[in-house]
Design a protein around this nucleic acid. Structure first.
Lengths: 249, 249
DNA sequence: ATATAGATCTCGTCA
DNA sequence: TGACGAGGTCTATAT
């Protein structure tokens, strides 16, 4: 066994015990046994073990890890018959991952401190807020009376009445709305009507999204619902010409 | 400007030009503008830039990156008024990410080579294969005649007839089946009947999954469909007592 | 390009 | 704990 390798092993195991973040660049093969089984032949990968004992194996391409273990995994490096193996197990989740390490390119460990919370603007929730505050984005006379309703009935984005006093249910999608969005809207309306004893003809359904797929449009119109083109809000976009009116309300 | 920092910058930019994989552990704040806008205040993070110019920003906890840029991003480190900034842009996707770097904990770069393809056992496709080859897992007399049907009709997992010659459509779920799985099954059957001019009463629907949610069960039975308990296949599980019979067919 | 669905989806939230 | 929906979902596949 190489002296360098033994030093790496010591360094990594110490860092793991101290809940440091550990990064290993290595040629390795990876076997996983848990919800599925997976087998990854040899190649160069980045192994990242976080302070919460999340483990990620990344190939040199793509956004997603090729293998991972969730928070709370027990991880250690062992030597078995001259073979360096990273052993990871999560007893509660019944997950097991072994990485046979053939060659270590580099190792780094560090105690990382991070309490930062991300703020995101432009989510579906922001869209429903925007509509709630700017009902004209839907149509004249629309009066919202609740948003982000998390009840037995469902998670209704915006709930209100139109100029004739008819109940309106709005489902927001921040991107293209597909037939699933229409099904979702239909399900909410079905549940509302059932629970409140209203006829479905007396409730209007609206999809609010930047665009809608052709199949979804057909399904929507078959159900008697309609689509309104609305873009999700962005800070910077508030100054765009098209959405300038947002600031006016 | 620190001499160390200038060395880091040079090292990183050179590595990026050579399509090496780059790892930076740094205290930084991150702004993203693209599909949404996001703002992440200061904290210690791992920044990983892959050889295909995928960029990931990981906090010290959790499986998912807190920010990312997809394959094909232009990345460089610049110094602006004494401030080190990692600038990433993806012109085609109209995505922009800036990371203001306050402190670098460590940097590592390496040329990584990996052609390894993962093999996964236990996916939904494996389940439908298993059922196709072992129809008794569904019921006596079931005769499958296609699997993984990707056609106009839909993506039907397993398609066949029962002992009375009635058409059977099976939707597989590798885990808990929810009401969406039932909707999916219903949708497929609806489309089949429409395209082939069959009455829906003459088609049977089956959800094959390890378990099913109570709501889904209710919906399933209202539609006259049924649930069959099937576990996704695993190599090792073939030797389990319960599934030993798989090998017998 | 759009449409559709799986994923070891993950993550948050609420009953 | 289960159920349910969002996600900058990502990724693969078919049309």
């Amino acid at each position: 066994m190489d002296k360098d390798v033994l030093e790496y092993i010591g360094k990594i195991n110490t860092a793991l015990e101290n809940n440091e973040t550990v990064i290993i660049a290595a040629n390795c093969e990876v076997n996983y046994y848990g919800k599925v089984e997976s087998f990854l032949p040899s190649g160069d990968r980045i192994i990242l073990i976080k302070s919460d004992k999340t483990l990620l194996v990344h190939q040199p391409t793509g956004v997603n890890p090729i293998n991972y273990m969730k928070e709370g995994t027990e991880v250690k490096l062992v030597v078995d018959k001259g073979q360096v193996i990273l052993k990871a197990k999560h007893l509660f989740l019944k997950d097991f991952l072994d990485a046979k390490i053939h060659l270590i390119h580099f190792v780094n460990t560090h105690k990382l401190e991070d309490g930062g919370k991300i703020e995101v603007v432009g989510s579906e929730a922001d869209m429903s807020d925007m509509i709630y505050e700017n009902p004209l984005l839907i149509e004249p006379g629309f009066k919202p009376f609740s948003r982000e309703e998390h009840t037995k009935v469902g998670f209704i984005d915006v709930f209100g009445t139109d100029k004739k006093g008819k109940v309106v249910v709005i489902e927001c999608k921040r991107d293209n709305a597909d037939f699933k969005a229409v099904q979702q809207l239909h399900r909410y309306i079905h549940k509302i009507c059932k629970s409140k004893g209203i006829k479905e003809e007396n409730v209007r359904g609206i999809i609010a999204s930047p665009k809608i797929s052709s199949n979804a449009k057909v399904m929507l119109e078959e159900l008697g619902y309609k689509h309104v083109s609305v873009n999700p809000p962005k800070y910077l976009a508030r100054y765009d010409k098209k959405q300038k009116r947002l600031g006016e309300f």
